[in-house]
Structure formats: structure tokens, C-alpha cells
Design a protein around this nucleic acid. Structure first.
Length: 569
DNA sequence: GCCGTTTTCGGCCCGACTGTTTTCAGTCG
């Protein structure tokens, strides 16, 4: 698929045009096209062949032609033209905080800055500060931006962001001026990775709260501090991470929460809808001329615009506003709908908790069942089970099922898919298990689609684990034809896993939505290697919600009996 | 560059903070 390549090219065009001071709406259009292509599950080449490119909202005549140009000539003239006269590494510097396109262009034209090294040099030798409208302070801010640019990873995993934000939220709760405080931003939307951490608070004296905020013990430095907004950089282990706090009065809480939760694209679209109705939305409320008509709660804000409440996980401008207008929003699955975890490891392979501990923990979580799915023998580094060890485990589970009441322990395995698409444990033995999850852990580049298809056709298999094999921000995932896998899974009524491990979340939200459209059911498993990891179910459910999934799309929301019938059907 | 039951031209969300300025540009979210 050429989707990602094209996405990158349009992002580069946007950056280049921004640097050159082009019309900003044109830049927005290219950015939007880049995002669309990045999230598109259909092959852009197929759409182009069918002449359907312009059916995608945000792709018009100009961009469609450029996509076609790329597909036939392997290049885009506009891309080359936009980048011409710009040194290769210069645009990367747009990611440096406090250094925008205008300033960068000035530094390039007047001082010949071509890359990070040049930028550091002109800052240190003082020539940067002599530029028009610059000065010591602005240069100093750019210098801090460079430090962050070098030291901060782009985005962190959702659960890491949670840990940071929880601590700061709890700190803020100790401030007497603070009334309400809650995380917002991509964290509240439960996006798989989070950039900056956004927190919203209400209180009468904003300046006092911001001052308290900036005194947070792990503050590395203060970026901004005013009456309604503060911004600090906190030290989190080896990394630095920006945290923004916004303060509003409590009668604007809903409007502010809505606004700061985003996404940006969702808000822009929402405000356009409001504008069409003669309304104006800001973080302070919904206004008709100068009269405030809503703002206390998010429900109130959406209602004022004539919409039902839209859950944060859906707010990405991926059709949720249209669905809301038509009263067709999905009834999203909730954590409380989950009746069991279908992928947990034990001390038999590389897990840290015993089967008994796992069962008791599952019971405490309110589950009806938990599936013990340890690795199979070819995953040597994880102490995978051979046939004999698996039989031992099966009889222990049978014993424990008599001993531990109120929870069903399922006999399972995470069996390895070998290079030729066969499994590494005996077929007859697998047939005796309750749950068979099949997974690829080796040979990521070798005929992956064919191996998975063959596995789906294997009657002893119930679930395909982490179907794309991606590791968030470290590994791309297998070269896989996901359409073919989903169609086969649907045909054979097999389940695809939503693996809830923080750096997997595989299937991702985009593929989950596709699975739902195709009619493939999903099994959420935490892949827990200790009872504490079982809390990751929340990440799984959040990702499912971001993929528009409802209770009926997920098998482990079924009661034990129903779930078991579904596996055996 | 995209888009259109008021438009094929003229819009395109809205506001805070900072630093450099005597009224605003740049950056960010």
C-alpha cells in the first residue's frame, strides 16, 4: 500500500508551504489529506483505480490528481517544487517548540541556518537575537525548545501518560483553591499515544492555582504562567514531558472540558456546525450573539448545538458528528460489560502469577471466567509449554476449578504459528482445550498473510492473537493483507484479538472499525504476565470504543455459557 | 486546496500567552 508514503509526502508539502508562507488554508488542506491517508484502511491505489478518491471528504480534485500522479510516475511535481530551495534537514526544525515557520524562514534567509547545528550556533553566537523582532528572551525560549526537541520522545504510551497525569491531578487536588480537576486532551480521548498532557481545573482564583501548579515538585521548568493557562515541563524518569493546565470558572466547565478534550479536528467541525446555526462556541460556553446559552456541562454544550452527547473516544472527526446529527452514534462498549479475560499468562511459562492467583484476581474483578493461555514450546525465551507441560497445566486447572468457586478457569494456549503456517502443538491435544489463541512470534516477514489464513482455516484455532504484530512506536508490524485476514476470519467465524498490552493495542482502532463493518467478532485479552497487568483491560476497552465497537461486537462481554457456545460454533 | 438547501467565489474555529512592541506578530493548542 502506498497510503503511508503519500501521507508523508503531503505532510512534507504542508511543512514546506508553511515555511514559504503560503495561504494557511491550503496548508491545512494538505495536512488534512496527510492525516486521511494515514488513517485510511483501504488501499489508496485501489480507490484511485476505481476513480473513488474524491468521494473521500477532504480529498478534492487537486489532491486526487496528485495522488494519481504519484501512482503513475512515482513522484509529485508539486512536492518537488515545494521542497525546492529548502535544505533537506531544515523543516525538521519546525518541530522545535517556540520556533515557528516565520522565525525559521528568517533565520534561514538572514543567517543561513540549514539544520539543527546551525541553529544552535547562531543562538550561541548571539546573531539570532539581533534579528527583527527577536531578542534575548525569545531566543532563550527557542533554546529550551531545542533541549526538549532533543530529549523528549515524540509521544508516550497512553498508560504512561495516565501515571503522570494521575500524580499531577492528585497534587492539584491538595490546592485549596481548586474546585474540580480532570485530565483532558488526547489522554481523555484514550488515544494510544499522548503528546502533551492536558489538565483542566475550575476555581475562582486562576493565578493562585497556576502558581501552585508551577510549584509541582517534579517541575523542570515553567514555560508559561498566566491567569487561565499554565504550562510546565516535568521530569519523568529520563524524559521530559510538557503538562498544560487550564483554569476556568465552574459555569464554563463543560465548554472548557469539551474544548480541551479535542480533538482539534472534531472541535473545528463542531464549531462550523454551531456557526451554521448562528452560534459561537469557545472554551467559555456556547453563545448566541453575546448571550451565553450553555457551558456548565459537556452534555449541555452538545445539546445547544442540537447534538446528543458524543463520548470523548469518538471525537476525531471520523464521522461521529454526522452520526450524531442522524442519531446514529454507536452505543459503545463499557468496561463493566466485560465478563472475562481471554488471554492471560501464568508461571507455567513467562508469567509471574500462579493460576490460582490469576483466578482469584479475575474473580475480584467481577469476571465470570479467565483463560490461561501460556506460550507454546517454540517460544523458548518465554519458557513455552511442550505437550507434557501443557497436560500438567490442564489437570491443575481442572483441580482448581473445583477448588476456587465463582470463577471459571479456561484451559488455553497461545500456540505458535510456524514458518509454514502449521502450529507447534499436536492437533488432538489442542482440541481438548477451551481456548486456542494462535500467534506469530517469529518470521515476521515470511508469508504472514498466508500463514494466518491457513491458521484461520485450522479447526482447532479460535482466536488470532495481536493480528498485525505492531509494537507502538517501535515496530511496524507484519507485512499483512488485513482485508484478506478479516474476510477469512468472518468466513470461518474465527475471532481476532484486541491485545490490550499498552504497547500493542492490536488490532488498532482503525482496523477494529473495519472488523466491525466486515462482521468479525473481537476478543479482548490483556496478555497479562502478572495479575496487575489485568488492569490493561481498560486500555482494550478504550481502544475498542475508539473503534466504535459495541458490546455485541466483543465476545468476552458474553456470559460464560454464551461465550463458550460462540467459541464452539 | 476544499467545499457548497442562502455560495462555483469567498469563506475556512477561537482564544491565550509571550515578547517585542507603542498596537501587534508569532506561536501554540
Amino acid at each position: 500500500m502506498k497510503n503511508k508514503e503519500l501521507s508523508r509526502i503531503f505532510a512534507e508539502i504542508a511543512d514546506a508551504l508553511e515555511f514559504k508562507g503560503e495561504n494557511r488554508f491550503k496548508i491545512i488542506a494538505y495536512r488534512k489529506a496527510s492525516k486521511i491517508l494515514d488513517e485510511l484502511t483501504d488501499d489508496v491505489e485501489v480507490l484511485a483505480r476505481r476513480g473513488q478518491l474524491q468521494e473521500i471528504p477532504g480529498i478534492g480534485e487537486g489532491i486526487a490528481k496528485k495522488i494519481e500522479e504519484y501512482l503513475t510516475t512515482r513522484g509529485i511535481k508539486k512536492h518537488k517544487e515545494a521542497l525546492s530551495g529548502i535544505p533537506k534537514d531544515l523543516l525538521k526544525l519546525l518541530k522545535v517548540q517556540n520556533l515557528g515557520p516565520k522565525t525559521l524562514a528568517l533565520a534561514y534567509e538572514k543567517l543561513g541556518v540549514k539544520n539543527l547545528e546551525d541553529l544552535k550556533r547562531v543562538i550561541d553566537n548571539g546573531s539570532m537575537a539581533d534579528l527583527f523582532r527577536m531578542g534575548r528572551q525569545r531566543v532563550d525560549n527557542i533554546k529550551k525548545g531545542i533541549e526538549a526537541f532533543v530529549r523528549t520522545r515524540e509521544r508516550i504510551l497512553l498508560y504512561e501518560a495516565f501515571e503522570i497525569s494521575d500524580e499531577i491531578v492528585n497534587y492539584l487536588k491538595t490546592c485549596p483553591e481548586v474546585e474540580k480537576v480532570a485530565p483532558a486532551g488526547s489522554l481523555r480521548r484514550m488515544k494510544e499515544t499522548v503528546g502533551d498532557i492536558d489538565i483542566l481545573a475550575t476555581g475562582k482564583d486562576g493565578a493562585l492555582i497556576i502558581d501552585f501548579f508551577t510549584k509541582y515538585p517534579k517541575t523542570d521548568r515553567i514555560i508559561a504562567s498566566g491567569k487561565t493557562r499554565g504550562s510546565i515541563v516535568v521530569r519523568t524518569g529520563r524524559d521530559l514531558r510538557q503538562v498544560d493546565l487550564r483554569i476556568v470558572q465552574s459555569d464554563s466547565y463543560g465548554a472548557a472540558l469539551q474544548y480541551f478534550t479535542g480533538s482539534k479536528a472534531h472541535n473545528i467541525r463542531l464549531r462550523s456546525i454551531a456557526k451554521e446555526k448562528g452560534l459561537k462556541i469557545s472554551e467559555y460556553g456556547v453563545f448566541r450573539s453575546n448571550e451565553k446559552i450553555a457551558g456548565k456541562s459537556e452534555e449541555e454544550v452538545y445539546k445547544a448545538v442540537g447534538l446528543p452527547y458524543i463520548p470523548p473516544e469518538l471525537r476525531e472527526n471520523r464521522g461521529e458528528l454526522e452520526a450524531a446529527l442522524e442519531e446514529k452514534l454507536p452505543k459503545l462498549v463499557n468496561l463493566s460489560d466485560v465478563k472475562g479475560d481471554l488471554h492471560v499468562h501464568s508461571t507455567y511459562s513467562d508469567g509471574l502469577s500462579t493460576i490460582k492467583e490469576t483466578a482469584q484476581h479475575a474473580k475480584a474483578l467481577g469476571y465470570e471466567y479467565v483463560a490461561i493461555c501460556d506460550h507454546s514450546k517454540s517460544v523458548r525465551y518465554a519458557g513455552g509449554l511442550n505437550e507434557d507441560r501443557l497436560k500438567e497445566q490442564m489437570s491443575e486447572i481442572e483441580k482448581l476449578n473445583d477448588e476456587v468457586k465463582g470463577i471459571k478457569i479456561l484451559k488455553g494456549i497461545e500456540v505458535d504459528i510456524l514458518g509454514d503456517g502449521t502450529l507447534d502443538l499436536d492437533h488432538e491435544l489442542l482440541k481438548q482445550l477451551d481456548v486456542v489463541i494462535a500467534a506469530i512470534h517469529m518470521g515476521f516477514k515470511k508469508n504472514v498473510t498466508e500463514r494466518i489464513v491457513k491458521t484461520i482455516e485450522n479447526s482447532s484455532v479460535d482466536i488470532i492473537a495481536h493480528p498485525t504484530g505492531r509494537l507502538i512506536s517501535t515496530r511496524e508490524g507484519y507485512d499483512i493483507n488485513i482485508d484478506r485476514v478479516m474476510e477469512k476470519a468472518e468466513e470461518h467465524r474465527k475471532l481476532l484479538e484486541l491485545n490490550a498490552t499498552p504497547n500493542r493495542l492490536d488490532l488498532n482502532e482503525v482496523y477494529l472499525r473495519k472488523a466491525k463493518d466486515i462482521g468479525v467478532k473481537i476478543s479482548i485479552g490483556t496478555d497479562a504476565h502478572s495479575v496487575a497487568d489485568m488492569r490493561w483491560m481498560l486500555l482494550g476497552i478504550s481502544t475498542a470504543r475508539r473503534g466504535w465497537l459495541e458490546k455485541r461486537d466483543i465476545v468476552n462481554t458474553l456470559s460464560y455459557g454464551e461465550m463458550f457456545r460462540r467459541l464452539r460454533s
